[in-house]
Protein backbone atom coordinates (compact mmCIF):
# COMPACT_ATOMS: atom_id res chain seq x y z
CA UNK A 1 0.00 0.00 0.00
CA UNK A 2 2.90 2.34 0.79
CA UNK A 3 4.32 1.81 -2.68
CA UNK A 4 0.97 2.84 -4.19
CA UNK A 5 0.83 6.07 -2.20
CA UNK A 6 4.49 6.68 -3.06
CA UNK A 7 3.76 6.27 -6.77
CA UNK A 8 0.75 8.53 -6.43
CA UNK A 9 2.86 11.25 -4.82
CA UNK A 10 5.50 10.93 -7.54
CA UNK A 11 2.79 11.14 -10.18
CA UNK A 12 1.27 14.27 -8.68
CA UNK A 13 4.69 15.89 -8.36
CA UNK A 14 5.39 15.03 -12.02
CA UNK A 15 2.10 16.62 -13.08
CA UNK A 16 2.95 19.78 -11.14
CA UNK A 17 6.40 19.83 -12.70
CA UNK A 18 4.66 20.17 -16.07
CA UNK A 19 1.65 22.34 -15.24
CA UNK A 20 3.43 25.03 -13.23
CA UNK A 21 6.11 25.74 -15.88
CA UNK A 22 3.40 25.81 -18.56
CA UNK A 23 1.32 28.36 -16.66
CA UNK A 24 4.35 30.51 -15.87
CA UNK A 25 5.47 30.40 -19.48
CA UNK A 26 1.96 31.46 -20.51
CA UNK A 27 2.42 34.62 -18.47
CA UNK A 28 5.86 35.16 -19.97
CA UNK A 29 4.52 34.47 -23.46
CA UNK A 30 1.87 37.17 -23.08
CA UNK A 31 4.61 39.56 -21.99
CA UNK A 32 6.80 38.45 -24.90
CA UNK A 33 3.95 38.94 -27.35
CA UNK A 34 3.37 42.50 -26.20
CA UNK A 35 7.10 43.23 -26.35
CA UNK A 36 7.46 41.73 -29.85
CA UNK A 37 4.41 43.58 -31.14
CA UNK A 38 5.78 46.75 -29.55
CA UNK A 39 9.13 46.27 -31.24
CA UNK A 40 7.51 45.58 -34.63
CA UNK A 41 5.30 48.65 -34.34
CA UNK A 42 8.14 50.87 -33.02
CA UNK A 43 6.69 51.14 -29.52
CA UNK A 44 8.15 50.18 -26.16
CA UNK A 45 5.54 47.65 -25.01
CA UNK A 46 4.96 47.03 -21.28
CA UNK A 47 7.78 48.63 -19.28
CA UNK A 48 6.37 49.76 -15.93
CA UNK A 49 5.60 46.74 -13.69
CA UNK A 50 8.82 45.09 -12.54
CA UNK A 51 12.17 45.23 -14.37
CA UNK A 52 11.50 45.77 -18.13
CA UNK A 53 7.79 45.30 -17.34
CA UNK A 54 8.24 41.55 -16.94
CA UNK A 55 5.65 41.33 -14.15
CA UNK A 56 2.95 42.97 -16.30
CA UNK A 57 1.08 39.68 -17.00
CA UNK A 58 1.04 38.74 -13.31
CA UNK A 59 -0.41 42.16 -12.51
CA UNK A 60 -3.06 41.60 -15.22
CA UNK A 61 -3.99 38.22 -13.71
CA UNK A 62 -4.39 39.80 -10.27
CA UNK A 63 -6.57 42.51 -11.77
CA UNK A 64 -8.79 39.91 -13.47
CA UNK A 65 -9.07 37.90 -10.23
CA UNK A 66 -10.34 40.85 -8.22
CA UNK A 67 -13.05 41.81 -10.70
CA UNK A 68 -16.67 40.74 -10.50
CA UNK A 69 -17.67 37.69 -12.53
CA UNK A 70 -20.82 38.68 -14.45
CA UNK A 71 -23.40 36.08 -15.47
CA UNK A 72 -25.75 37.24 -18.24
CA UNK A 73 -29.33 36.73 -17.05
CA UNK A 74 -30.44 34.90 -20.21
CA UNK A 75 -27.45 32.56 -20.34
CA UNK A 76 -27.35 28.87 -19.54
CA UNK A 77 -25.56 29.27 -16.20
CA UNK A 78 -23.97 25.85 -15.81
CA UNK A 79 -22.59 25.64 -19.35
CA UNK A 80 -21.54 29.30 -19.24
CA UNK A 81 -19.27 28.64 -16.26
CA UNK A 82 -18.26 25.18 -17.47
CA UNK A 83 -16.97 26.24 -20.93
CA UNK A 84 -13.85 28.20 -19.86
CA UNK A 85 -12.94 25.46 -17.37
CA UNK A 86 -13.24 22.81 -20.08
CA UNK A 87 -11.05 24.84 -22.43
CA UNK A 88 -8.28 25.23 -19.86
CA UNK A 89 -8.47 21.60 -18.72
CA UNK A 90 -8.18 20.37 -22.31
CA UNK A 91 -5.18 22.58 -23.00
CA UNK A 92 -3.45 21.25 -19.88
CA UNK A 93 -4.21 17.49 -20.04
CA UNK A 94 -2.52 17.27 -23.43
CA UNK A 95 0.80 17.84 -21.65
CA UNK A 96 0.48 14.35 -20.13
CA UNK A 97 2.11 12.77 -23.20
CA UNK A 98 4.55 15.48 -24.35
CA UNK A 99 8.13 14.18 -23.96
CA UNK A 100 10.51 16.99 -22.95
CA UNK A 101 13.46 14.62 -23.13
CA UNK A 102 13.86 10.89 -23.82
CA UNK A 103 13.02 10.04 -20.19
CA UNK A 104 11.11 13.05 -18.91
CA UNK A 105 7.44 12.47 -19.72
CA UNK A 106 4.38 11.86 -17.53
CA UNK A 107 2.82 9.04 -19.56
CA UNK A 108 4.72 7.33 -22.36
CA UNK A 109 1.77 5.71 -24.16
CA UNK A 110 1.77 3.81 -27.45
CA UNK A 111 -0.76 6.08 -29.13
CA UNK A 112 0.60 9.41 -27.89
CA UNK A 113 0.11 11.28 -31.15
CA UNK A 114 -3.51 10.12 -31.48
CA UNK A 115 -4.17 11.19 -27.90
CA UNK A 116 -2.84 14.67 -28.70
CA UNK A 117 -4.90 14.84 -31.88
CA UNK A 118 -8.03 13.81 -29.98
CA UNK A 119 -7.49 16.33 -27.18
CA UNK A 120 -6.79 19.17 -29.61
CA UNK A 121 -9.95 18.30 -31.54
CA UNK A 122 -11.99 18.44 -28.31
CA UNK A 123 -10.81 22.04 -27.89
CA UNK A 124 -13.61 23.28 -30.11
CA UNK A 125 -16.21 22.25 -27.49
CA UNK A 126 -15.09 24.96 -25.07
CA UNK A 127 -15.58 27.58 -27.76
CA UNK A 128 -18.87 26.28 -29.12
CA UNK A 129 -20.40 25.73 -25.66
CA UNK A 130 -19.31 29.22 -24.58
CA UNK A 131 -20.88 30.73 -27.69
CA UNK A 132 -24.16 28.90 -27.27
CA UNK A 133 -24.46 29.30 -23.48
CA UNK A 134 -23.96 33.07 -23.71
CA UNK A 135 -27.28 33.28 -25.57
CA UNK A 136 -26.26 36.37 -27.48
CA UNK A 137 -25.66 36.91 -31.17
CA UNK A 138 -21.97 37.79 -31.44
CA UNK A 139 -20.73 34.91 -29.27
CA UNK A 140 -23.02 32.57 -31.20
CA UNK A 141 -21.66 33.66 -34.58
CA UNK A 142 -18.13 33.34 -33.21
CA UNK A 143 -18.85 29.82 -32.02
CA UNK A 144 -20.27 28.77 -35.40
CA UNK A 145 -17.27 30.20 -37.22
CA UNK A 146 -14.80 28.50 -34.93
CA UNK A 147 -16.54 25.13 -35.14
CA UNK A 148 -16.33 25.15 -38.93
CA UNK A 149 -12.80 26.54 -38.95
CA UNK A 150 -11.28 24.11 -36.47
CA UNK A 151 -12.87 21.06 -38.11
CA UNK A 152 -11.61 22.18 -41.53
CA UNK A 153 -8.02 22.60 -40.43
CA UNK A 154 -8.01 19.41 -38.36
CA UNK A 155 -8.37 17.49 -41.63
CA UNK A 156 -5.13 18.84 -43.05
CA UNK A 157 -3.37 18.51 -39.67
CA UNK A 158 -4.44 14.85 -39.71
CA UNK A 159 -2.87 14.28 -43.13
CA UNK A 160 0.35 16.03 -42.09
CA UNK A 161 0.57 13.80 -39.02
CA UNK A 162 -0.07 10.73 -41.20
CA UNK A 163 2.87 11.68 -43.45
CA UNK A 164 5.18 11.89 -40.44
CA UNK A 165 3.83 8.62 -39.07
CA UNK A 166 4.53 6.84 -42.38
CA UNK A 167 8.16 7.92 -42.05
CA UNK A 168 8.37 6.78 -38.41
CA UNK A 169 6.30 3.61 -38.24
CA UNK A 170 5.10 4.24 -34.70
CA UNK A 171 2.48 6.34 -32.90
CA UNK A 172 4.71 6.81 -29.86
CA UNK A 173 5.98 10.38 -29.47
CA UNK A 174 9.39 9.28 -28.16
CA UNK A 175 9.82 6.98 -31.19
CA UNK A 176 8.86 9.88 -33.46
CA UNK A 177 11.59 12.08 -31.98
CA UNK A 178 14.21 9.32 -31.91
CA UNK A 179 13.74 8.56 -35.60
CA UNK A 180 14.82 12.17 -36.28
CA UNK A 181 18.23 11.72 -34.68
CA UNK A 182 20.06 12.03 -37.98
CA UNK A 183 17.76 14.27 -39.95
CA UNK A 184 14.87 16.42 -38.79
CA UNK A 185 11.63 15.82 -40.69
CA UNK A 186 11.43 19.56 -41.40
CA UNK A 187 13.99 19.05 -44.18
CA UNK A 188 12.55 16.15 -46.27
CA UNK A 189 8.96 17.14 -45.44
CA UNK A 190 9.37 20.91 -45.71
CA UNK A 191 5.98 21.63 -47.39
CA UNK A 192 4.20 19.62 -44.69
CA UNK A 193 6.09 21.54 -42.02
CA UNK A 194 4.87 24.86 -43.45
CA UNK A 195 1.30 23.58 -43.77
CA UNK A 196 1.41 22.29 -40.21
CA UNK A 197 2.46 25.67 -38.84
CA UNK A 198 -0.26 27.48 -40.82
CA UNK A 199 -2.88 24.93 -39.68
CA UNK A 200 -1.65 25.30 -36.11
CA UNK A 201 -2.33 29.04 -36.39
CA UNK A 202 -5.87 28.25 -37.53
CA UNK A 203 -6.35 25.57 -34.88
CA UNK A 204 -5.33 27.89 -32.05
CA UNK A 205 -7.45 30.75 -33.47
CA UNK A 206 -4.45 33.00 -33.89
CA UNK A 207 -4.07 35.77 -36.42
CA UNK A 208 -4.37 35.78 -39.41
CA UNK A 209 -7.12 33.21 -38.71
CA UNK A 210 -8.65 34.60 -35.51
CA UNK A 211 -12.13 34.89 -37.02
CA UNK A 212 -13.88 33.36 -33.95
CA UNK A 213 -12.86 36.44 -31.98
CA UNK A 214 -12.73 38.91 -34.84
CA UNK A 215 -13.13 42.23 -33.01
CA UNK A 216 -13.89 44.22 -36.15
CA UNK A 217 -17.10 42.30 -36.87
CA UNK A 218 -17.95 40.27 -33.74
CA UNK A 219 -16.97 42.52 -30.78
CA UNK A 220 -14.88 39.77 -29.12
CA UNK A 221 -16.34 36.63 -30.70
CA UNK A 222 -17.19 33.73 -28.45
CA UNK A 223 -16.03 35.37 -25.21
CA UNK A 224 -17.90 38.66 -25.64
CA UNK A 225 -20.05 37.98 -22.55
CA UNK A 226 -17.22 36.75 -20.36
CA UNK A 227 -15.68 38.86 -17.65
CA UNK A 228 -13.18 38.56 -14.85
CA UNK A 229 -11.51 35.19 -14.28
CA UNK A 230 -13.73 33.20 -16.66
CA UNK A 231 -12.35 35.43 -19.41
CA UNK A 232 -8.92 34.91 -17.86
CA UNK A 233 -9.28 31.14 -18.21
CA UNK A 234 -10.01 31.47 -21.96
CA UNK A 235 -7.00 33.73 -22.27
CA UNK A 236 -4.75 31.28 -20.40
CA UNK A 237 -6.05 28.37 -22.46
CA UNK A 238 -5.40 30.15 -25.76
CA UNK A 239 -1.77 30.78 -24.89
CA UNK A 240 -1.30 27.32 -23.34
CA UNK A 241 -2.64 25.91 -26.62
CA UNK A 242 -0.12 27.97 -28.56
CA UNK A 243 2.71 26.50 -26.49
CA UNK A 244 1.23 23.02 -26.95
CA UNK A 245 0.99 23.33 -30.74
CA UNK A 246 4.57 24.67 -30.85
CA UNK A 247 5.84 21.70 -28.86
CA UNK A 248 3.92 19.38 -31.16
CA UNK A 249 5.61 21.05 -34.15
CA UNK A 250 8.98 20.60 -32.47
CA UNK A 251 8.29 16.93 -31.76
CA UNK A 252 6.98 16.16 -35.25
CA UNK A 253 9.38 18.20 -37.37
CA UNK A 254 12.28 19.73 -35.45
CA UNK A 255 13.75 16.70 -33.72
CA UNK A 256 12.47 17.29 -30.17
CA UNK A 257 15.34 17.32 -27.70
CA UNK A 258 18.12 16.62 -30.24
CA UNK A 259 20.72 19.31 -31.03
CA UNK A 260 20.86 20.60 -34.65
CA UNK A 261 24.17 18.81 -35.31
CA UNK A 262 25.41 15.88 -33.24
CA UNK A 263 28.91 17.23 -32.49
CA UNK A 264 30.81 17.82 -29.26
CA UNK A 265 29.90 21.19 -27.73
CA UNK A 266 26.28 20.92 -28.83
CA UNK A 267 25.45 17.38 -27.69
CA UNK A 268 26.57 17.82 -24.07
CA UNK A 269 23.93 20.49 -23.52
CA UNK A 270 20.87 18.79 -21.93
CA UNK A 271 18.03 17.98 -24.31
CA UNK A 272 15.48 20.00 -22.37
CA UNK A 273 17.41 23.15 -23.31
CA UNK A 274 17.16 22.38 -27.04
CA UNK A 275 13.47 21.57 -26.67
CA UNK A 276 12.72 24.90 -24.97
CA UNK A 277 14.79 26.85 -27.50
CA UNK A 278 12.93 25.26 -30.43
CA UNK A 279 9.52 25.84 -28.85
CA UNK A 280 10.52 29.45 -28.26
CA UNK A 281 11.48 29.88 -31.93
CA UNK A 282 8.15 28.50 -33.15
CA UNK A 283 6.31 30.74 -30.69
CA UNK A 284 8.25 33.70 -32.05
CA UNK A 285 7.03 32.77 -35.54
CA UNK A 286 3.45 32.82 -34.17
CA UNK A 287 3.94 36.35 -32.82
CA UNK A 288 5.79 37.49 -35.93
CA UNK A 289 2.93 36.31 -38.13
CA UNK A 290 0.48 38.18 -35.93
CA UNK A 291 2.42 41.41 -36.33
CA UNK A 292 2.84 40.99 -40.11
CA UNK A 293 -0.29 39.65 -41.76
CA UNK A 294 -3.81 41.09 -41.97
CA UNK A 295 -6.77 38.94 -41.01
CA UNK A 296 -8.24 36.57 -43.60
CA UNK A 297 -11.80 36.88 -44.84
CA UNK A 298 -13.92 33.87 -43.83
CA UNK A 299 -14.43 32.53 -47.37
CA UNK A 300 -10.68 32.85 -48.03
CA UNK A 301 -10.02 30.84 -44.89
CA UNK A 302 -12.38 28.06 -45.96
CA UNK A 303 -10.99 28.04 -49.49
CA UNK A 304 -7.43 27.74 -48.18
CA UNK A 305 -8.37 24.85 -45.89
CA UNK A 306 -10.49 22.76 -48.22
CA UNK A 307 -9.36 23.62 -51.74
CA UNK A 308 -5.62 24.06 -51.26
CA UNK A 309 -4.38 22.34 -48.09
CA UNK A 310 -6.61 19.26 -48.27
CA UNK A 311 -5.71 18.18 -51.84
CA UNK A 312 -2.06 19.16 -51.36
CA UNK A 313 -1.60 17.17 -48.16
CA UNK A 314 -3.51 14.22 -49.60
CA UNK A 315 -1.21 14.13 -52.63
CA UNK A 316 1.85 14.41 -50.37
CA UNK A 317 0.72 11.44 -48.29
CA UNK A 318 0.57 9.38 -51.50
CA UNK A 319 3.88 10.70 -52.82
CA UNK A 320 5.70 10.11 -49.53
CA UNK A 321 4.42 6.58 -49.12
CA UNK A 322 5.12 5.74 -52.78
CA UNK A 323 8.67 7.11 -52.43
CA UNK A 324 9.35 5.17 -49.23
CA UNK A 325 7.87 2.00 -50.71
CA UNK A 326 9.74 2.24 -54.01
CA UNK A 327 13.14 2.81 -52.41
CA UNK A 328 12.50 0.27 -49.65
CA UNK A 329 12.79 2.88 -46.90
CA UNK A 330 9.58 1.97 -45.10
CA UNK A 331 10.17 1.45 -41.36
CA UNK A 332 9.90 -2.13 -40.01
Amino acid sequence: MTSLSFELTIGILKIFSFVVPVLVSVALLVYLERKVLGAVQLRKGPNVVGPFGILQSFADVLKLLTKENLLPSSSNKFLFIFAPMLTLILSLIAWAVIPISSTYVIANINIGILYLFAVSSFGVYGVIIAGWASNSKYPFLGALRSAAQMISYEVSIGFVIITVLICVGSLNLIDIVESQKNMWFAIPLLPMFVIFIISALAETNRLPFDLPEDEATLVAGFFTEYSSISFGLFFLAEYANMILMSSLTVILFLGGWYPPIDIFPLNVIPGIFWFVIKVFLILFVFLWVRATFPRYRYDQLMRLGWKIFLPFTLIWVVITSAFLFYFGLLPN
Partner: peptide
Amino acid sequence: IVYIGAVAILFLFVVM
Protein backbone atom coordinates in the same frame (compact mmCIF):
# COMPACT_ATOMS: atom_id res chain seq x y z
CA ILE B 1 -11.41 11.46 -32.58
CA VAL B 2 -14.09 10.57 -35.11
CA TYR B 3 -17.24 10.70 -33.00
CA ILE B 4 -16.44 13.36 -30.40
CA GLY B 5 -14.02 15.40 -32.48
CA ALA B 6 -16.05 15.50 -35.69
CA VAL B 7 -19.49 13.87 -35.74
CA ALA B 8 -20.84 15.21 -32.45
CA ILE B 9 -19.52 18.69 -33.21
CA LEU B 10 -21.44 18.69 -36.48
CA PHE B 11 -24.54 17.47 -34.61
CA LEU B 12 -24.10 20.30 -32.12
CA PHE B 13 -23.55 22.72 -34.98
CA VAL B 14 -26.89 21.78 -36.57
CA VAL B 15 -28.87 21.42 -33.34
CA MET B 16 -27.71 24.80 -32.05
